[in-house]
Write a protein that binds this DNA or RNA. Structure first.
Length: 209
DNA sequence: ATGTCGATTTGCT
DNA sequence: GCAAATCGACATA
């Protein structure tokens, strides 16, 4: 018995509305098999980045550089890059080939392989910080730049499954993205999606007075 | 060749 | 709550 029939198919990733995909990814299950270790978690927080018009996106105005080239792949590939010289950030490329959109996976609710996550995260005790924040998710799942451009459809090392976890619309909150103040008015786009009241999501931005 | 900066995390105050 | 850590990507020259 394989889980092939649960793996999200190309047509899920290759839609044109990246915000809609980011929202739909809430409640799906991220799985990795790296170094012989399998870990799984429910995606509880995402952010959408759109290549054409979004200043916060590396591929803004479809700018091609060695780094952004990954985002021009067809939807269903991994885009992994180093941030602040320290953290690996894992994104899922969406839309068709040459339409450079991506969804950043920001937080995951651990399901299995928790001991492996804990070791990779060098944590003495499991806490809410295990998979909270994009750098932590990547570390817990053994994702690094070696997995940049890897295919999420074939389910070799990294993929996302639909296990029919039911999420109602009112459980999902849409808010502004984190750390993109430099993107001017695009920073105001409500393209961060998270499960309300979920223990594992990263901090909700303070309402400004 | 060089300077700036970042889709963050952590520990210490 | 704040600031250090750390380095590749990118722009400029």
């Amino acid at each position: 018995m394989t889980n092939t029939n649960q793996i999200l198919p190309p047509h899920f990733y290759q839609q044109s509305n990246v915000a809609s995909i980011a929202r739909s990814l809430i409640g799906k299950v991220l799985v990795s098999e790296v170094d012989g270790k399998r870990v799984e978690g429910i995606i509880v927080e995402t952010e959408a980045y759109q290549g054409e018009n979004d200043r916060a996106c590396h591929a803004y105005q479809k700018k091609r550089t060695p780094r952004t080239e990954t985002m021009f792949l067809p939807g269903g590939h991994a885009y992994v890059y180093l941030c602040y010289g320290i953290h690996q950030l894992f994104n899922i490329v969406t839309n068709l080939k040459d339409e450079p959109d991506a969804v950043l996976i920001r937080a995951v609710e651990p399901v299995s392989g928790i001991e492996t996550m804990q070791i990779r995260r060098k944590m003495a005790k499991v806490s809410y910080r295990l998979c909270q924040g994009p750098g932590c998710v990547a570390q817990a799942f053994g994702i690094n730049n070696m997995l940049n451009t890897c295919d999420l459809i074939i389910g070799d090392q990294l993929w996302v499954e639909d296990r029919s976890i039911q999420i109602s619309e009112d459980q999902i909150m849409a808010t502004t993205r984190i750390g993109v103040e430099y993107a001017k008015e695009d920073a105001l786009r409500p393209w961060r999606f998270l499960l309300k009241n979920n223990f594992w999501v990263s901090a909700i931005p303070k309402p400004h007075s």
